[in-house]
Design a protein around this nucleic acid. Structure first.
Ligand SMILES: [Mn+2]
Ligand SMILES: [Mn+2]
Ligand SMILES: [Mn+2]
Ligand SMILES: [Mn+2]
Lengths: 221, 221
DNA sequence: GAAATTATTTAGTTTTGTCTAAAAATATTT
DNA sequence: AAATATTTTTAGACAAAACTAAATAATTTC
């Protein structure tokens, strides 16, 4: 497999994440995501198209080709493995790992990554609960349910968290919620979208709609 | 401390290594070391001079300033810590670590490096026996003696190896010589600079002058 | 459906890091 | 001390990755 520049990789990864939601990605969306200007995106898309990593017709938006997708999964694999390493081995906290992994992910030595994976015991998810692609680019795709969409009185388990700030970490630690926590919603309040949730034997307590929006669960306990 | 580009870092590191031997480094030497052209070196030296990392007057060669030296030690610290990590934790062999560390050394996040150091147990030397600078840039400077310069019948301990090829590794493993091995020279042969050495209780055996040239020792056992 | 607005692309620059070819400085021979 | 050879620098070019400003296409509004 060929090697790509850091800039190319950052573009590919951003398209991958954006097209999850949108299907096809627009120039402005990507420019916004990468804190760059639309003109720069057009330039890069021409380049990635020439390398057959994106499908792109002027004014039509773009999406990754199969090859582009494979490249993206490689980058995401490296990113999440390093995040896991930083949290698990170096004891970085949850909100600090992303930034460092942004640099480490661009060291794309296959043997390094596969040995790191093995050393870490082939972890399935990163510290934020996001799945880690395996050496073949296979990634778990259990659809995650936003806590705001979970029905009342239905057992569920926290699977991931979308915001990665130290502020949300502080709040989650205070509420004793982390990935793997089993919970049920007792009551939802329409007015401010806050809700009352219950964890095991503990008394039910309240969380804001804003917090709930950033927590994802899967059914079952 | 400021951040430098990968190219700047590679130049700084190369000057550091070359000036160990030469005192002052020339344009051609550095171009040769970095597989680049003399004209490119001149350009970079102007830049590093402007950043006060090298002392340089046209046609006079160059050497690192105090600041340049500190930057170099930071790079070498990262390089050797990653080499140790790769060998010790990921079970890379001795001859494979350098190449991978060449990339990892440019991820210059202070907290990452210091936590890695701690995680590794503050190792003093890398897999090739070269000393690892501490967080303050302090580096052990025990003068290493080339095995060819060790007097006969004088107890010594292998401290480092300069060549890092898989070929020398194979030979050293076969001869059961590694860093920390205690040995004595029994006889030196002028003709081809080969020598007979003795390790502990084992029978004395012969090594070539070429091999001896790449082994460094310190006095004592 | 024309006008206004927004999104995207094009054209032309800039910075970084490299290169080649030519000029200039320095070192080595005779 | 010339002549020759070597080393280093300068000048000019190029590719990558970004930018600004202007032009053009697409979309939305009236
Ligand atoms: Mn991340
Ligand atoms: Mn993550
Ligand atoms: Mn090395
Ligand atoms: Mn080393």
């Amino acid at each position: 497999m060929l090697n790509y520049s850091t800039s190319e990789e950052n573009h590919i990864k951003a398209i991958f994440h954006l097209q999850k939601q949108d299907g096809t990605v627009t120039t402005n969306e990507l420019a916004n995501e990468l804190n760059t200007k639309p003109a720069s995106i057009t330039d890069m898309m021409k380049k990635l198209k020439a390398k057959k990593l994106v499908n792109y017709q002027p004014y039509q938006g773009f999406r990754l080709t199969n090859d582009g997708n494979k490249v993206a999964l490689g980058i995401i694999r490296r990113h999440r493995l390093w995040e896991y390493f930083l949290a698990e081995k170096l004891k970085f906290s949850w909100d600090e790992v992303h930034e460092v992994a942004e640099d480490l992910e661009h060291v794309s030595n296959k043997k390094l990554v596969d040995k790191l994976d093995e050393y870490l015991g082939f972890p399935r998810v990163d510290p934020h609960g996001d799945p880690i692609p395996d050496a073949n680019g296979k990634i778990e795709t259990t659809k995650k349910i936003c806590l705001t969409d979970l029905p009342v009185n239905t057992p569920a388990t926290v699977s991931s968290v979308s915001d990665q700030s130290s502020e949300i970490l502080e709040l989650l630690e205070h509420k004793k919620i982390s990935i793997g926590t089993k919970l049920e919603i007792r009551k939802k309040f329409e007015f401010d979208h806050s809700m009352e949730i219950k964890i095991r034997q503990q008394a039910a307590f309240n969380i804001s709609g804003q917090l709930a929006k950033n927590i994802f669960v899967k059914y079952g306990s």
